[in-house]
Design a protein around this nucleic acid. Structure first.
Lengths: 210, 210, 210, 210
DNA sequence: AATGAATGAGATTTCATTCAT
DNA sequence: AATGAATGAAATCTCATTCAT
């Protein structure tokens, strides 16, 4: 965790400024959409000059990547112990849904911004910006959890890629969009409903006697 | 000799050009993302002058709305008979997943473009463009289907809003994004996996004897 | 008045179309201002295709010049006999004001359009379009009338250029603008007031004993 | 340490740039007409990039309004003390004509531009831009002056609206257009001629004995 | 005689970025 | 560390004009 040689340590002021800018960027993006979140708008919200952003970030891309990094780091740090505390795959899945809901409630704008950026921002090559972030950093290794659950006989024999994709979408799309549509929504209840659905969809040991 | 008043009577040429432009717009959006899909880029792809687009569409908004209208119309016309043919709620849900997969395979770029527009495009007021299209035209009335299924005792007593949201996300996000990530994906199999998951998650009459 | 060789005679239809287009141009210009009077707007008003205008007029300049020519011709033809009927300079000046008011009331839009064009339209060289029309065709030879009046001792010894300029402005600016500001104005009364003012300002031999 | 809220505190540089741009705009408009006075042309004249204008003014409308405000403010500040110094209505009218001529000679392009804008520029609603500036700010309250003169028995009993309109036209149209037609004109003499004419046209108690 | 279709030039405006202070 | 000022590229849209039918 030492500053690598060549990359000078950041002063306290700089760290604070960067955090403030990232926070404001998330707010503006969440409130007005990515397209309207110009550098000028973000600076205005932060009460600073446009060029201050340029001073602290290489370019807009860099700012967006920092926002992504920051959010994902906070998110995973929040989730990790909660998942680790659950021994079973089913418990981990429920913890993933509940924990995500909790974090989303606390950091709504960050998550809304993340979604906007995922769809809108494009790197210089035209490819979406999120692609340049390692995917498994984005969400916990749901695939691995499910694989273990299947091997232990706890989960039925579904296609892991499909189910993990659905579970991720349930959080990063379904839940986020529901929150955007209705900021007063009961997220914990929402997550609980989803947890039940995923329990039914994934558990082995269910006898369907129709 | 006049066309019906209010409906301005499009010539064959105009209809064809409009369709061509909409198609090219979808391609460019799907391939390069909404942000890069400028009028110039669309015109270049179509091999026409920028102003030809202006000649046929009032403005960019108009073009996007036409793309949305066209795609949704084709999509719902494709789905409707398939849903109607299934008597049970479960059948309808499976038909929705299977039919969507089929249509998506055939009109991939249209669906990718729709997703991009949904997230990116904003009308002059800043509100998302998709909001100006009646929502229930976008997808079949999943809520109603589920309600009937619950009343008939076929489906268990889940929260309809949550489950319908998840089902829509499964199609418009999970499946579309999987397709974007891997264009060679087996969509029919993907839909089938999802169908099983939703069957388990929604059916009544399942005895869970753990 | 024979069509000159090389300039083929205009058919009845063509003459009518040209007149219709000129009329519509005047209406649109008068109502929406020169800047908004695009070819498209004029064609729309006339209920014809844009290209019909191009068919009958070389270009927009040509159309504007025709509008100018037409209006000025009608205007002078209307004024000439009225001025000729007055033997005295003072009578001619009053006739100019009264006659202008009459003609303006009858052909309001033409006169409003003329004013708009005078200020807005520019030929290809950038000079105002009205400059390309012989000036003395625009209004009767007020200078000559005043000169005669002075020589006859009827008018006092003012600067002819200044007074003629003021008299023209009184009609082409003061009166027209008053009409534009208030279409229901009593133009005859307005002209009468002006006539009195100019009588006092120009006459020799006035004894004003309140 | 804050500038008064609502008044955004312009730096010296900004004030200078804005003034320069307004000046150049007036020059270009006066020389080439409003229609040709594009942002690009104004920027070219000022030797700056187009976007510098955008940086200092919200849009073209804003620039034009600033030009109008600036010119009218300078004009009225110049006239006011001159009118106030004259006790009689006749004196005020003559001062209005003389003062206008003086100011026009000094700020020719500003006045030419004002005339062009008055006729050409239209706000987003299509109404002329000058309408958005309070009219009585444009020229001194000629009507009030004349009313007082009539009540005092100094002026004869003419229609005030008509005469005030004519007097304004004499300055803002007759004189300005004469100046445009011939930049070397003797404006003071021109104003003097006009003053005599208006004296004769408005005074009570005149005994004209050739 | 008329028209729908197409075009290219040009206008305004937005925006990320750079630079001197 | 911060800022005001400036820039050039690009985007959308309008418009007079041309052409084939």
């Amino acid at each position: 965790m030492q500053p690598k040689p060549g990359r000078p340590a950041r002063t306290f002021t700089e760290v604070a400024r960067r955090a403030q800018i990232v926070e404001c960027a998330a707010d503006v993006i969440a409130e007005t959409g990515y397209a309207r979140a110009s550098m000028a708008a973000i600076a205005r919200r932060a009460g600073i000059a446009k060029s201050v952003i340029s001073y602290h970030f290489a370019d807009k891309n860099d700012l967006m990547q920092e926002l992504i990094r920051t959010t994902i780091a906070a998110y995973t740090q929040f989730l990790e112990p909660r998942l680790a505390a659950e021994p079973s795959a089913g418990g981990k899945i429920r913890a993933y849904l509940d924990g995500s809901a909790q974090h989303m409630a606390a950091r709504t704008n960050m998550h809304l911004a993340l979604l906007e950026i995922a769809f809108n921002a494009a790197g210089p090559d035209g490819r979406p910006l999120l692609a340049s972030i390692p995917l498994d950093a984005h969400t916990p290794a749901l695939e691995q959890i499910m694989r273990h659950g299947q091997q232990a006989g706890e989960l039925r024999n579904f296609d892991i890629e499909v189910m993990a994709g659905l579970l991720r979408s349930a959080v990063t799309h379904t839940m986020v969009l529901a929150l955007r549509a209705n900021p007063a929504i009961d997220l914990a209840g929402y997550a609980s409903e989803l947890a039940t659905a995923f329990h039914l969809a994934t558990s082995a040991q269910i006898t369907n006697s129709q």
